[in-house]
Simulated assay, not measured.
Amino acid sequence: MKVVRSRTVGGDPLRVYTVDDERLLVTDIVGRTLTLYSTTLRRIRSLRLEGIPAAVSFHPHRPLAYVSQLDTDSVAVVDLDRFSVIGGFGTGPEPDSSALLPSAA
């Protein structure tokens, strides 16, 4: 493994996720943002959240991200096409990661 490309960013990026072949999603715990980058590390857009974004899980068939927010004890549901929060739900204290399970129906 070797570094191919790097970029200096503000805040405190915690995790980087591959969205698809062309985009990356970064959680920033200081800026309270999600930021989309191209795989060439060009910033596409950012979304400010109410809470501190820790971890992200992706819907397997829809362009949705489930973002764990540490200080609000909640998960924000983010539409990745519109890049906006479209819902959310409460969790236990300080959710750091999540997993999506198929429904029983």
Rank of each mutant, 00 (worst) to 15 (best):
A104I: 12
A55H: 14
K2G: 05
L34M: 10
R42A: 12
L14F: 08
S103G: 12
I29T: 13
P102M: 03
S97I: 05
A65G: 10
S84P: 00
L14C: 02
R82Y: 00
E22W: 05
V67D: 01
E94A: 13
S103H: 13
T91A: 00
D71S: 07
S38Q: 10
R7P: 01
R42Q: 10
V4M: 10
A76F: 03
P53M: 09
E94Y: 07
H61W: 09
A76P: 02
A55K: 03
E22T: 11
V19Y: 06
S84G: 12
G51T: 12
R7I: 15
F89P: 07
E50C: 01
V16F: 06
V30S: 14
P95Q: 05
S97T: 11
Y37F: 15
D81S: 13
L41R: 04
V56D: 01
R62N: 08
R82N: 06
A99I: 13
Y66Q: 10
L47G: 03
T72E: 03
L100D: 05
H61Y: 09
A76L: 08
S57W: 10
V77C: 07
D81A: 09
T39F: 02
Y17L: 11
P102F: 02
T35Q: 09
M1P: 06
V9Y: 06
V26N: 00
Y17H: 14
V9H: 05
H59N: 06
S6K: 15
T27S: 11
P60H: 10
V4H: 03
R23Q: 11
V26Q: 01
D73V: 01
L64E: 07
D71H: 11
R82I: 05
V4N: 04
D71L: 07
I86P: 02
A76Y: 04
F58N: 06
G10C: 02
T35V: 08
A76G: 06
R82T: 08
L80S: 08
I44W: 03
V67E: 01
T33S: 14
L14E: 08
V30H: 14
L25W: 00
R45V: 05
S57L: 08
G31Y: 10
R48G: 04
R42N: 10
R48H: 11
I52C: 04
R82K: 15
T8W: 06
S103W: 10
L41K: 03
Y66P: 08
G88H: 03
D12W: 10
P53A: 06
F89Y: 15
L24V: 05
L36Y: 09
S84R: 15
E22M: 04
E50W: 02
L100F: 01
P95A: 06
L47V: 08
S46D: 14
L34Q: 07
V75A: 02
A55S: 14
T35R: 12
F58C: 11
G88E: 04
A99T: 13
V4P: 00
D71M: 05
R42I: 05
P60L: 09
D12K: 14
V9I: 13
F89C: 10
Q69F: 02
L101T: 03
P102W: 02
Y66A: 10
L101N: 04
Y66K: 11
E22Y: 12
D28K: 02
P95R: 01
R62H: 09
D73G: 00
R5I: 02
T27N: 07
R23G: 00
R43K: 15
S68E: 09
V9K: 00
L49K: 03
Y66M: 12
F89V: 09
T33L: 08
V26E: 00
S38F: 03
L24K: 07
L14D: 05
R48E: 15
V77T: 14
